[in-house]
Design a protein around this nucleic acid. Structure first.
Length: 939
DNA sequence: GGAGTCACG
DNA sequence: GACGTACGTGACTCCG
């Protein structure tokens, strides 16, 4: 220890935030060798930090050191002048992950990170510099930022780390034309367009310096403005005096910011070699690691680019889960401690506890946080009295922070671009916070990381991931809530129990993130995660929150009509059968048909029940001659089933799904539900609204646009066949798509040698079935069943198809071989779909083979529309339009009538170009558009 | 809670 | 040579 900071001590202040941006733009875009993680700014930063720590003793060498970061984008200056720094662009995508890494680097070098809410880094630098000089020491500001030049004075100088040159009074004079103490006056006059500092119109740096030098100071200048000879200048000053004074306030740094550390705490210490080397090894900074190890006289680590089979690193050693270690945050001091800790670490796992799985209805009950494995806390906010009894009290349990106060305290953190928020299924929490006016950014999602890494291997729920990757079974929610009818909501759970459960969720999420983060790069799915998964979260959240307007009356009338019809069918069915039975019971129906009425051909499945599926019943309806009663009954049951389905699944259920507050239906999309990359829609499923039958299509009439608006539907034409034509590289099919031909007719013509102008619907139908069959991993049996033709004939079609388009067979064989060799298949965009059953023996192998053939095609189509959706908000920005629904190859929009054409143009263009620029296709993507007052008209 | 059925792409 | 199959989903209804 060198004692209290004072004479002979020298403080180095590194402007962290500014440096990251400068390094990012100035240095070549270095990436980590093993996986391409962008680390250029981190490398540059680490290098100057090391230089600062080790600079030779002597004049100017640091005895104390700190790195200063901006806390968040909004500061007290925005209250003075709202537009201040308001149009700063978002940081580039490949810079974002480097913010937390830079903080990590600082900690690895054992240097203090300082940031203060509501203040810019520059204010903290001003404050510490003042303190250093007042204590009798000196200070060097490591930055080239002109805004800091006002601080140069005896005892305070600057150092430009990029150009490695000092900045003293001479350099300040060179830049501003005045001495450092007059820099703010010049800046106030000249303004700054990038920061939105207004200044005086028409006066730039040169003129400003001239005027200040002439009049001595800004105040003197303003009070004697009338003496200025040039009329334009004089007017600019006279008419803008207030704006100029505000400008001066904006550019003047506050040297009395509340800095939470003492100078003594900033003393330079030797870094912990183990910790530092671990960081440098992780980053793969070879030359810096060598320099550091020489200096610290330790062995240089061998840094090799890691690969999938590299041994597990020490970071993955397991820390046991300890529920007793979790903290309950019940007062403001504890909350503030956690917020400070989170800022220090630069990332936080966040999880919300609510009263419902429906984000549109759920009430926030508590928030859990975790910053490192084992370090987690829970903030109870809405826990109420009364667990077991039917009528719980509405009184809040004592000892909880207020919801509004807590959210107000957390909002800057959750929206801070430099703090990474980590969630499991972040779309849920994002929507919960969005309903409270908080837009979480940036974030990672462990569910989506897992999906990018291992789609097809396992599901991606937290409990499953925890057991699989952490070997830990989290507390089951059922143990707190019970199940079934008497299930509690989370607000009735005792806080003690809630802390253990909720904090554990955040802990698990954080540990999963630590584990997945390096794996993404190693598995080369970072691009998939960053471009196809993560950006979809907010897009879907906004679609889900928008919802779609559904007309209850239309549905209600249809339900009533269906009810009558069903009753009538039931009478007729029981008449024919000669007995009463439950038409909805396949088991009873089978027994009536095959046992009692004697219809031939009944087949029992593995459970011993007769099969009574639509295909079976349809076959029976053809027995009019041999078994007329059976034929009539089967036909009636088919009718009954259709109506029953429409009523129960659609007209009844959709009415119940209308949100009482919004009057709209809000589905939920699972991003990681389908293995191929498709979305899945649940609660309610709006991706299977009827369309194939006339009766069913009428349900779409209940999906309407509000007054003055219309619904617009845009769907990709034949997207999977186009992708097949590209992937399997079939020139004839590609040309047909380029020529805009009827692809099924063209296929039929090629296969059956029928000229296009002599094509019959029947021949075309067969070709269409084959085209689809190919996408599904065709088999003679499947095609035979689909077309209801003998198996041998179907096989003949397939043989002819492969003969005519040999590339299809080659594609199928190559895909299956790839799956067998690698255990996964890939889409054109790099999405991996694992095929663990591909080498299995038995019937499972057939399934796996066909799934492997289908997955790249279906998955690539899914990727294409994902890309379109992700680009859509920007593409339709400014239009009075919203994207509402996705149905695999269709997007549904709601738009003000007058903007319909503009929307169609913008959205269609986005969809048709969605593959570009990364995956050029040899076929065009074509989008059909429709519009109308309801979905039936629009489709 | 699994099986059967059927709605969609 | 037999085995059973079109690919991917979700919701509803029976029924044990």
């Amino acid at each position: 220890m060198t004692g209290t900071f004072g004479k002979g001590h020298h403080l180095h202040l590194i402007d962290g935030s500014a440096y990251i941006f400068r390094a990012y733009h100035a240095l070549p875009p270095l990436t980590r060798q093993s996986d391409g993680l962008p680390v250029g700014a981190v490398a540059g930063f680490s290098s100057i930090l090391w230089g600062e720590i080790t600079r030779d003793k002597g004049a100017g060498a640091a005895t104390h050191i700190a790195v200063i970061f901006d806390h968040s984008s909004k500061t007290f200056r925005n209250r003075l002048y709202a537009p201040y720094k308001a149009n700063r662009p978002e940081p580039p995508e490949d810079l974002r992950p480097q913010f937390p890494l830079t903080r990590e680097a600082t900690r690895a070098f054992n240097v203090a990170c300082i940031e203060v809410p509501d203040y810019e880094a520059d204010d903290i630098i001003a404050t510490l510099a003042r303190q250093a000089v007042e204590a009798g020491g000196s200070c060097t500001i490591v930055s080239s930022d002109k805004d800091l030049m006002q601080l140069v004075r005896p005892g305070v100088d600057m150092h430009d780390p990029m150009k490695n040159r000092p900045i003293g009074p001479d350099e300040v004079m060179e830049k501003f034309g005045v001495t450092p103490d007059k820099v703010v006056d010049v800046q106030a006059l000249a303004g700054d367009s990038t920061d939105n500092v207004p200044g005086a119109p028409g006066i730039g740096l040169k003129t400003a310096a001239l005027l200040i030098n002439e009049f001595g100071s800004l105040e003197d200048l303003l009070s004697r403005a009338s003496e200025i000879k040039q009329p334009k200048r004089r007017e600019a000053l006279e008419q803008n005096a207030d704006l100029i004074r505000i400008s001066k306030q904006l550019v003047s740094l506050d040297a009395n910011a509340p800095v939470p550390v003492t100078l003594d705490a900033l003393e330079v210490t030797t870094p912990d070699p183990e910790k530092l080397m671990a960081f440098l090894t992780e980053m793969e900074f070879r030359s810096l690691a060598r320099r550091v190890s020489e200096r610290l006289k330790i062995a240089a680590p061998v840094i090799e680019a890691r690969s999938d089979d590299s041994p597990q690193t020490a970071e993955e050693t397991r820390l046991p889960f300890d529920h007793a270690a979790y903290e309950a945050i019940r007062d403001r001091a504890a909350l503030d401690r956690w917020i400070a800790r989170i800022r220090d670490v630069g990332h936080v796992a966040v999880d919300t506890e609510t009263t419902s799985l429906d984000e549109m209805q759920a009430e926030l009950v508590g928030i859990s946080l975790s910053v490192d494995a084992g370090q987690a806390a829970y903030v109870p906010l809405g826990h109420k009295q009364g667990g077991g009894d039917l009528f719980g009290s509405t009184e809040l349990v004592a000892g909880q922070l207020g919801l509004d106060e807590t959210l107000k305290a957390l909002k800057p953190l959750l929206e801070d671009p430099a703090i990474l928020k980590i969630g499991q299924n972040m779309k849920y929490d994002w929507k919960i916070f969005a309903r409270h006016g908080i837009r979480i950014t940036p974030f990672d999602d462990t569910m989506l990381m897992s999906y990018a890494l291992s789609a097809g291997l396992n599901n991606h729920g937290m409990d499953e991931l925890s057991e699989r990757h952490l070997g830990h079974q989290p507390i089951p929610i059922k143990s707190l809530l019970g199940s079934g009818k008497s299930q509690l909501t989370f607000d009735r759970v005792g806080i003690e129990d809630a802390v253990k459960y909720a904090a554990e969720d955040a802990d698990v999420t954080l540990r999963l993130w630590q584990k997945f983060k390096p794996q993404l790069h190693r598995a080369r799915v970072t691009t998939v995660y960053e471009t196809l998964e993560r950006p979809l979260v907010t897009v879907l959240a906004n679609m889900e929150m928008a919802g779609v307007l559904v007309d209850r009356d239309t549905l209600s009338r249809m339900s009533n009509a269906f009810a009558q019809k069903l009753a009538q069918y039931e009478d007729e069915i029981q008449d024919i059968a000669g007995e009463k039975f439950n038409v909805g019971s396949p088991k009873q129906l089978g027994e009536v048909l095959f046992d009692r009425m004697g219809v031939p051909g009944g087949e029992k499945g593995k459970t011993g029940a007769y099969a009574t599926g639509a295909d079976v019943l349809e076959d029976i309806t053809t027995l009019e001659d041999s078994h007329p009663k059976g034929a009539r009954l089967a036909a009636k049951v088919l009718d009954w089933r259709q109506i029953s389905k429409l009523k129960s699944t659609y007209t009844d259920a959709l009415q119940l799904a209308i949100n009482p507050e919004t009057g709209r239906v809000h589905t939920s999309y699972s991003i990681a539900g389908a293995n191929t990359g498709r979305l899945a829609s649940t609660d309610p499923n709006l991706q299977n609204i009827p369309v194939r039958t006339e009766e069913g299509r009428r349900i779409r009439e209940a999906f309407v646009a509000p007054k003055g608006k219309v619904l617009v539907s845009l769907d990709y034409s034949q997207i999977e066949l186009r992708i097949l034509a590209h992937m399997a590289d079939i020139p004839a099919l590609q040309q047909a798509f380029r020529d805009g031909l009827d692809i099924h007719a063209m296929t039929a013509s090629e296969m059956f040698n029928v000229p296009l102008d002599q094509m019959t619907p029947e021949i075309r139908r067969r070709a269409k079935a084959i085209n689809f069959g190919v996408i599904y991993g065709i088999s003679g049996f499947g095609l035979a069943r689909n077309l209801r033709i003998p198996r041998a004939e179907a096989q003949g079609f397939i043989d002819r198809y492969f003969e005519r388009f040999p590339g299809i067979r080659e594609y199928m064989d190559a895909t299956v071989k790839f799956a067998k060799d690698n255990g996964f298949v890939q889409t054109l965009f790099g999405r991996k779909i694992h095929t663990p059953e591909i080498n299995a023996k038995g019937p499972g192998a057939g399934f796996a083979k066909r799934a492997a053939i289908n997955a790249p095609i279906q998955g690539t189509a899914a990727d294409v529309i994902r890309r379109a959706m992700i680009r859509m908000p920007a593409a339709i920005e400014g239009l009075p339009a919203r994207m509402l629904l996705q149905v695999h190859d269709e997007l549904l929009f709601e738009v003000e009538e007058s903007a319909t054409e503009a929307l169609i143009k913008a959205a269609r263009d986005t969809m048709e170009q969605a593959n570009h620029p990364v995956v050029p296709l040899k076929v065009p993507l074509v989008v059909d558009a429709g519009q109308g007052r309801n979905w039936a008209e629009a489709h």
